[in-house]
Design a protein around this nucleic acid. Structure first.
Lengths: 137, 137
DNA sequence: TTCATAGATGCAATATTGTTGCATTTGTAT
DNA sequence: ATACAAATGCAACAATATTGCATCTATGAA
């Protein structure tokens, strides 16, 4: 139930937030602002912006940015239930060159990068290629 | 000389382009659209957008996007002298949490990621932490 | 169950960012 | 020196995002 998700993240359960969350839940890939707007029937754009912002801050969803002005969002794992606005993810972001969708893909272990002189605290990997579904066809 | 860079990438050498290129050359870190606008005295914004677009297409600069609506650009290595619009880079993108600058940092070898079912063709690594300069202070 | 209140919503107005079409100017190859 | 494709600059516009404020509502406490 999406009520549970919201409550867990200390967000008030409102009809609008449930609607927005539903859009995320029914997609297995990352979605854009446009996608959400298209899926919501009637809505107030300002409220949507604010909803998205609080979802990100509370760790309900996370932002994915990729070259080419691609800005999408996807649900967070259970892991990130913190109020800090920081997100920990054990996955990489993958964009399919065929269907153009962006997915969060779990991987066993994120390789550690080391750079002399730099202290790396977080890292994120973005990849492009052909996704599972498009490989088959 | 920045004339050489432009000619090598098959771009006409115009005063404006030289100005923009100069801004990139004098920074050792990635810069934003805002940064460029601030450094250029008097300019036409539309021309700037178009200039940036052709610089990216011809491989003079590359785009760097990071979570938090960060969109910056930096000069490409000599390597990417192709007209395809694709860029090959042997570096990762690093953002310092202290000075907030974004750097292109060369690393020895980019680790290979493998995901069952997915064909990875390109990948990019983004990291956050403390940069060389800020570590010292 | 009712009530008070912090938080969420919706509207208006506005800011920021990026694009398109078109006339004019300019860099470059001949 | 010249012709022409490419670049520029202007006007108009489109898309995206933000702020302030009045109103409404979800939630915890009485």
């Amino acid at each position: 139930m999406n009520d549970t998700i919201l409550r867990k993240k200390k967000l008030r359960v409102t009809p609008f937030r449930k609607e927005v969350l539903k859009v995320f839940l029914k997609n297995d890939h990352a979605i854009s602002m446009q996608d959400i707007e298209n899926e919501l029937g009637d809505f107030d754009r300002i409220t949507l912006y604010r909803t998205i912002k609080s979802f990100i801050n509370k760790g309900v969803i996370h932002e994915i940015v990729m070259p080419g002005d691609i800005r999408k969002m996807a649900l967070c794992d259970q892991v990130c239930d913190h109020d800090s606005g920081l997100h920990d993810h054990n996955h990489i972001h993958f964009q399919c060159k065929k269907c153009e969708e962006v997915f969060c893909v779990e991987i066993d272990k994120i390789p550690e990068i080391k750079i002399p002189g730099f202290q790396i605290e977080e890292q994120e990997i973005q990849a492009k290629g052909i996704c599972e579904k498009c490989s088959g066809s």
